[in-house]
Computed example of a mutant assay.
Amino acid sequence: MASEPGIETAAAGLRRQLADLLEKDRRLLSPQWRAAVESVPRHAFIPRFYREGDAPGVTAWEPVTPEGVGQEEWLRLVYSDETWMTQFDGQDVDWTDPKPISNAAPTSSSTLPSLVVRMLEDLDVHEGMNVLEIGTGTGYSTALMCHRLGDENVTSIETDEGVARRARKALTTCGYHPRLLVGDGRAGYLDGARYDRLIATCGFRNIPPAWLEQVLPGGVILTTLRGWLRSLGLVKLTLTRDSASGWFSEDGPSFMIARQQDAPESFGMVPDPEDGTTRKATYGPDVLTSSGPGFLAQLAAPDARFFSMPVEGGAISTFVLDSVTDSFAVLAPTDNGWQVRQGGPRRLWDAVESSVAIWEEYGSPSTAAFGVTASRDAQVVWLGNPNGPQWPLPS
């Protein structure tokens, strides 16, 4: 195994290669962020991690350590443009004897560098700006910001104590000393306000009101909005005195949802076969998983989730259940399409179909045609302009 100086020399070369790749792909645009990428040792922040296995069937994750795959391969993977998982189901990994993991949900990761850098470039920071980061994670993006802006201008909040502890250790080892906090990122950090920029590396169902209070007028909030069906995407908002407004990006990333806003364990009550009223469906369940229609479905049914299963030993039906209002829609195949059976306070499939129809009427645009306006009183997603069709975000 190579000596420690040998590791650092190899890592420095790999960082330059990574910066070259990100620059070529137009993710890395400024010399200041390139200097950060070339300087911050990602391997210090993910000394061990998991990658997805390639065996068919259930998704399984394989541990990656210098001892397990060899130091050269470990370093190569660390500096590849990939997301690596570092925690599952909110539980710390026993790295003294790491095992493959299956039937588990990733709850912390090191995001692929191209996305990290793209978001930092989108944040449009300048010297002396004060930045609040929601979701410290491994601390890698925190370190990039410290390198660019100085430790005294970076505050980062992490909800998981174990994740925060490891990030703090890695940052300190690398010589970075930002303000690090453990808590609910939705509350921000009032004592450090007001901030010129706020960046979130986990998904939220809405814009937390505290952020609107703590970011300066003219400042920027960069976050991912998502729901229980899917991610809506990355949105960049500019603050005014009373509200924040801005647009979704063209190809929004998907981040893990903030733990405080995760979906309830129960999907809700499965309706009895005789419940609800039935009609012919204009759209089938594929709209839930298609990129454009799925975006509209999330807006139209923000508290819903879905699953599919055979009904009474027959054809597979798709159940769309809203555990907040106890509304439901059940889609079943027919000889010439689909039928839907709906019940509860909200007609879920009516709302989905109406929203998809509006999207088609506007020419089936990308997410970049949608924007958000958030104030203390209301938060809406709109299409085309703030006076166009609107969908409220969940409060």
Rank of each mutant, 00 (worst) to 15 (best):
P386I: 03
I134V: 15
A357W: 15
L115P: 11
V372L: 08
P386Q: 03
L321W: 03
V154W: 02
D326P: 11
S110P: 04
W391F: 12
D303C: 12
V220F: 00
G268C: 01
Q260E: 10
P106S: 00
V330N: 02
S266W: 08
Y176T: 07
G284V: 10
S109H: 05
Q71V: 12
S3I: 05
R15I: 07
E62N: 01
A10E: 08
S266T: 06
E52H: 14
S3F: 13
G90Y: 05
T59S: 12
A10T: 07
R51V: 15
N336V: 13
R186T: 06
N385P: 12
L212M: 11
A187N: 07
T9H: 12
D377S: 15
R168K: 14
L222Y: 05
T282H: 15
E23F: 01
Y50K: 11
R48Y: 11
L331P: 03
G139L: 10
N336C: 12
A12W: 09
E213C: 06
G185D: 01
P63V: 07
L112S: 11
R15P: 02
R197S: 06
P392V: 05
Q17E: 08
Y189V: 03
E361S: 14
L393F: 11
G388N: 02
R346A: 04
E72T: 08
V311P: 04
T65E: 09
E52G: 09
V320L: 11
R259G: 06
P389K: 01
E127M: 08
R179K: 15
S327T: 03
S249G: 12
A200Q: 03
M1Q: 10
A378S: 14
S355M: 13
E23T: 07
P208W: 01
S254E: 04
W338T: 00
F307T: 00
A36F: 09
R179C: 13
R34S: 12
F45Y: 11
W228D: 02
Q298T: 15
G185C: 03
E360R: 15
A281W: 06
A55S: 12
K24Y: 09
S231F: 09
A374C: 06
G175Q: 13
P209H: 01
D94G: 03
P100V: 05
S395F: 09
A300C: 01
T59N: 13
S231C: 07
P271S: 06
L239R: 05
V78M: 02
D184N: 02
D335W: 03
L112D: 00
P273Q: 08
I257P: 08
A19L: 06
R346P: 12
S290A: 15
T9N: 09
G371Y: 10
L383V: 06
L75S: 03
A44T: 11
A263P: 04
F319A: 04
T172G: 09
P253E: 00
L180H: 03
T9R: 15
W359V: 13
D350S: 01
M1D: 10
S231N: 02
V270A: 04
P5C: 02
I7H: 08
G53S: 14
